[in-house]
Computed example of a mutant assay.
Amino acid sequence: MGYYVPVEQGVNLFVEDVNPSGNKSNKTIVFIHGWPLSHKQFEYQFDVLAGKEYRCIGIDWRGFGKSDKPIHGYTYNRLAADIHAVIQALQLKDVTLVGHSTGGAIAIRYMSKYNGHGVSKLVLVDAAAPIGFTAENANKLLEETLNDRPKMMQGVTDNFFFQYITKPFSDWFFQMGLEAAGWSTAAVIKLLRDENVYEDLPKIAAPTLIIHGTHDSVIPFKQAQQLNQMIPKSELIPFYYSGHGGFWEEREKFNDLVVQFMQ
């Protein structure tokens, strides 16, 4: 089921909550999507993991998906505070937090800023960390976003996956990105250019699983190796047949790894 959770005055986040009756110890997974997507990117996790009695919760960031789209609030601190507000409102405990790409960086800031409140394990998937975009790439994406956002989103779609995707899948993915507001899409590009999470990494106390595609052309695999070195209790699993989308490109392996990690 889907519902809205207020995170500050006038700002409500959309939450997709699949199998809420499966809220048992170690059985709840909170998914934080990547830029410029929504919780829908995890369809192929929800389909399988909810059937295994896991409670799967997807949160659309402010400005993206079905959430409210204010003009403000696109910093790691604010986006982490939004996640904290949802976890508190739903009284979640002992959850596994899964963050993809920019969602991984948001999850890192959450774990650092809130001492991992409510979270027992962390999964980082092709995380945009410790840094996000180079200034050159960010400025190119920013110019396209402000002048021809569909062209920008088509480029993101074309570069996202290593494995072949069909035209219908490409169209679905493309439209997902356009559900975001233009201003929030641009604001997060600036965030990825101007902020980083280096200082947060040593503060992560929870066991951390790092999944990263070796063919990732968005966030280089070497950054996953940096995370592995800097996060104390972490393990890196390379996905040798994936680009930036291992949650779909190697979905069976991905889902199995998440379940094993939660045991």
Results as ranks from 00 to 15, higher is better:
residue 3 Y to D: 00
residue 201 L to E: 05
residue 110 Y to Q: 11
residue 222 K to E: 06
residue 36 P to K: 15
residue 108 I to T: 10
residue 81 A to H: 05
residue 66 K to R: 14
residue 82 D to T: 09
residue 195 E to L: 08
residue 145 T to F: 07
residue 107 A to N: 14
residue 226 Q to S: 02
residue 229 Q to S: 10
residue 118 G to A: 06
residue 215 H to T: 03
residue 234 S to V: 00
residue 169 F to P: 13
residue 218 V to A: 11
residue 83 I to K: 12
residue 252 E to K: 13
residue 21 S to T: 04
residue 46 F to Q: 07
residue 222 K to N: 02
residue 15 V to G: 13
residue 157 T to G: 13
residue 225 Q to C: 02
residue 58 G to L: 04
residue 127 A to M: 06
residue 210 I to E: 05
residue 199 E to R: 14
residue 145 T to E: 09
residue 14 F to P: 02
residue 179 E to W: 07
residue 125 V to S: 13
residue 172 W to L: 12
residue 25 S to K: 15
residue 122 L to E: 02
residue 68 D to E: 07
residue 23 N to V: 02
residue 185 T to W: 04
residue 204 I to Y: 14
residue 6 P to I: 07
residue 197 V to M: 13
residue 10 G to E: 03
residue 37 L to S: 07
residue 194 D to M: 03
residue 21 S to R: 14
residue 69 K to G: 03
residue 92 L to C: 14
residue 203 K to F: 04
residue 109 R to M: 00
residue 20 P to F: 04
residue 196 N to D: 09
residue 125 V to C: 12
residue 172 W to A: 11
residue 52 K to F: 00
residue 87 I to K: 14
residue 168 P to M: 01
residue 87 I to T: 08
residue 228 N to C: 04
residue 156 V to L: 11
residue 227 L to E: 03
residue 224 A to Q: 06
residue 52 K to G: 01
residue 247 F to W: 11
residue 16 E to H: 05
residue 13 L to T: 02
residue 61 W to I: 01
residue 211 I to L: 15
residue 86 V to R: 15
residue 81 A to L: 08
residue 219 I to Y: 07
residue 8 E to K: 15
residue 81 A to D: 11
residue 73 G to L: 04
residue 111 M to S: 15
residue 82 D to G: 04
residue 20 P to H: 11
residue 254 F to R: 15
residue 182 G to S: 12
residue 13 L to M: 09
residue 149 R to V: 00
residue 39 H to Y: 03
residue 209 L to H: 09
residue 12 N to W: 07
residue 136 E to K: 15
residue 77 N to C: 00
residue 244 H to I: 07
residue 246 G to C: 10
residue 134 T to R: 12
residue 132 G to V: 00
residue 73 G to E: 04
